[in-house]
């Protein structure tokens, strides 16, 4: 069983216990790369043994919906169970569906998660493309204007509830913008988010950026900050979790913690000291001209 499955099942368990929900009305997960370790195991066995002496377990567990399925099995949960696999928008896709289910009245508690794992093979293959910074042990590299980032992995789960008891945060918006580098398009989405929530840019206490330390890739985040949130406080989070397809899930987890505990962990390096309590956080992530915006508020 690959680590991604163990991470996912464990995080889902913690999450449900925390929310005091026994059996959610839906289990929705996002994963960019799926169960990499099992996929690689089965593939390498095929290639190394010339298609002989293969056993089914790693093949079965290579299926992308294994994490969601294992959670359902452990809970004996017969309810809705979807897995999204849309690159760096896998978690966001799952998030959009979760909110839709709640709005439809089809669910009052949705278990939402983002999971991805890093493997030695995945690391070394992507090294050839110059993806990674080597020999980095602190967040310092983030500010060095250099190429590459640090690999990451993780599982973050959330219970989304239409009638929460002791919530971490309220979800005000989850928006995705596809295939554009136009700042105008981004502005339109931001305007929509603001107008539907009666907010202005200055009301956002913290912008959490998906910057990952790669000089070239991070330009989009500095432009975003410069164009729309020049005066706002900002921080990155991928220096804490590394880069992976569903790292936005970690960002949402971090934002939820900040909003509930009303304190910002020392590892989060802010652009300046906040003047007041953080009550609105906007997360922004981007890849290949795709963008996601998630707005959370304290309750």
């Amino acid at each position: 069983m690959g680590r991604v499955i163990k991470m996912g099942v464990a995080a889902a368990n913690y999450c449900l216990r925390d929310a005091k929900v026994e059996n959610p009305d839906a289990i929705i997960t996002g994963t960019g790369m799926g169960c990499l370790e099992d996929t690689e195991n089965f593939l390498c066995n095929i290639l190394n043994n010339k298609e002989q002496f293969l056993t089914p377990t790693s093949f079965i567990q290579s299926t992308h919906n294994t994490v969601g399925a294992q959670i359902a099995l452990l809970l004996t949960c017969n309810n809705y169970n979807f897995t999204y696999v849309h690159r760096d928008l896998s978690f966001e896709s799952a998030f959009v569906d979760s909110i839709l289910l709640l709005k439809e009245g089809e669910a009052s508690n949705v278990l939402l998660g983002g999971v991805d794992e890093m493997t030695p093979n995945h690391y070394s293959i992507h090294s050839k493309k110059g993806f990674w910074r080597k020999g980095v042990t602190t967040s310092e590299f983030f500010y060095e204007n250099s190429k590459g980032t640090i690999p990451g992995e993780g599982a973050a789960f959330f219970t989304l509830s239409s009638s929460p008891k002791d919530p971490y945060a309220a979800v005000l918006a989850v928006e995705i913008l596809f295939n554009t580098n136009s700042q105008e398009d981004l502005k339109k989405i931001l305007d929509r988010i603001f107008s539907s929530n009666n907010l202005e840019a200055k009301d956002i206490d913290l912008i959490l950026l998906g910057a990952n330390g790669d000089q070239e890739g991070d330009r989009v985040y500095s432009e975003f900050k410069e164009n729309f949130f020049k005066e706002n406080n900002a921080a990155a989070y991928k220096n804490l979790c590394g880069e992976y397809s569903t790292s936005t899930a970690f960002g949402v987890w971090l934002a939820s913690q900040i909003l509930k505990k009303k304190e910002i962990p020392a590892g989060v390096s802010l652009s300046r000291t906040p003047e007041k309590e953080v009550s609105k956080i906007l997360l922004y992530n981007s890849y290949n001209g795709n963008h996601s915006l998630i707005l959370l508020s304290s309750c």
Binding site: T63, H64, N65, F82, Y84, V85, F178
Partner: peptide, 11 residues
């Protein structure tokens, strides 16, 4: 198409 897209994988 660019208004919305996503991918589902449930076997």
């Amino acid at each position: 198409i660019k208004d919305y897209m996503t991918t589902i994988s449930t076997a």
